[in-house]
Amino acid sequence: MAKVKGAVVVDKEGCKGCSLCVEACPHDVLALHKEVNSKGYHYSFMENPDECIGCANCGVVCPDTCITIYRVKVS
């Protein structure tokens, strides 16, 4: 069975640190970073990038549309 690998790119400066994407992620890939962006928000990032399946749940719930998602099949 082909395995699916995904990757998430977060626009650090657009992120407001609401953490809805962290909650929406079924594989606990995302977390809020310890550091803050220029507006003082703890931005979202891939803490466990190997677990990402590119389901796009995080992108769908992001109110500020700062998440871009890529997915590839690995045979």
Binding site: K5, A7, A56, G59, V60, I67, T68, Y70, R71, V72
Partner: peptide, 14 residues
């Protein structure tokens, strides 16, 4: 990760 982040693998964008 850089092998996944390519335009042809894009599934969700603004």
């Amino acid at each position: 990760i850089n092998e996944i982040i390519k335009p042809e693998n894009l599934v969700y964008d603004k």
